[in-house]
Amino acid sequence: MLVHARSAACVALTVAFTLGAGSWSASAQDKVAYPHKAVTLVTHSSPGGGSDVFLRDMTKYLKRYIDADFVVENVSGGSGAKAMAHLAKQKADGSVFYATTPTYIYTSHMSALDTNYSALEPLVNVFYDPAVIYTRADAPFKTLKDVIDKAKSARSAWGAANPGSLERITLEQLKKATGASTAAVVTSEGGGETMINVLNGTLDIAVGELQELRSQLEGKQVRVLAVLADERLSQLPDVPTAKEGGIDLVVRKFRGLAGPKGLPDDVTSAWDAAIQKVLADPEYKAYYEAAGLVPAFIPHKDYVTFINTFAEEQKELLSEVGVIKK
């Protein structure tokens, strides 16, 4: 719905999550010491959106490993632009962080902003959201190659959720890598419209996150043709990666944290330790695996390089396909 999708909602919810804390109690020495009592985690998603759910779920378990309380704050608007501007103004003392996704890099590249991704310091990565290519359950395609072959000889439309997004560029890369240059890449606002158009056959395939597809996979309404990751997913052991099919396409849709520039060492090392612990928590592990997330811990010292490399690569790709000028 265009009106809703465009008017970003913004609400601050300051609720301490107590769910689950009663069933499990950590002894004090298991917890990583932290210089702040309360930590604010900012997301550009509206309540109920991707990063919002990620943060709220993670903080439930994070409290077992970091000696602090967590508050999630939604600073929506401008596809992350407002959240970045907000974060850059905060003190770099470890009391406030921002949930990173490729969106904030893309917004920085696509729009001439005063404050962009380079104003923030990447802290640590937590997950990859594995990207998959899917089609409707009764589609004639059995493999990604079938779709590519069709696209070379007939009209074939492929869907990505948003116009200036990693998914969009992924499909452009797929076109380039396979020579299916006539395939049409159709974007919409959000995954819902794309899904409807896959189900009704307007789109042959679409790229999406495993998370968003859970309901349709369960209901056997869609079929995953390929996984855009280095390895097969534990949730979909029978689905090959694009690499196995000879297409070298890997998407790293990361979910992590970043803070204002100049984070102190005791803060970064506390997070390095705590994220490893939280990812190993059996209860959380069961939860995030069911949700379709792949743990991908990247420590602080490597995450800065990771984000910068990612940003440079994407800038290169965007200017290659002509979306932005160098």
């Binding site: 465009r6 407002k82 729009s111 902003l113 116009p163 200036g164 974007t187 979306v323």
Partner: peptide, 26 residues
């Protein structure tokens, strides 16, 4: 006004974060 629905470039946004997602109808 806002992000173009097909190409994703900003239209009449002038780098204003508030305009990237368009003018809220309300």
């Amino acid at each position: 006004i806002g992000t173009d629905p097909v190409t994703g470039v900003g239209r009449f946004t002038y780098g204003q974060a508030d305009l990237l997602t368009g003018v809220p109808l309300i």
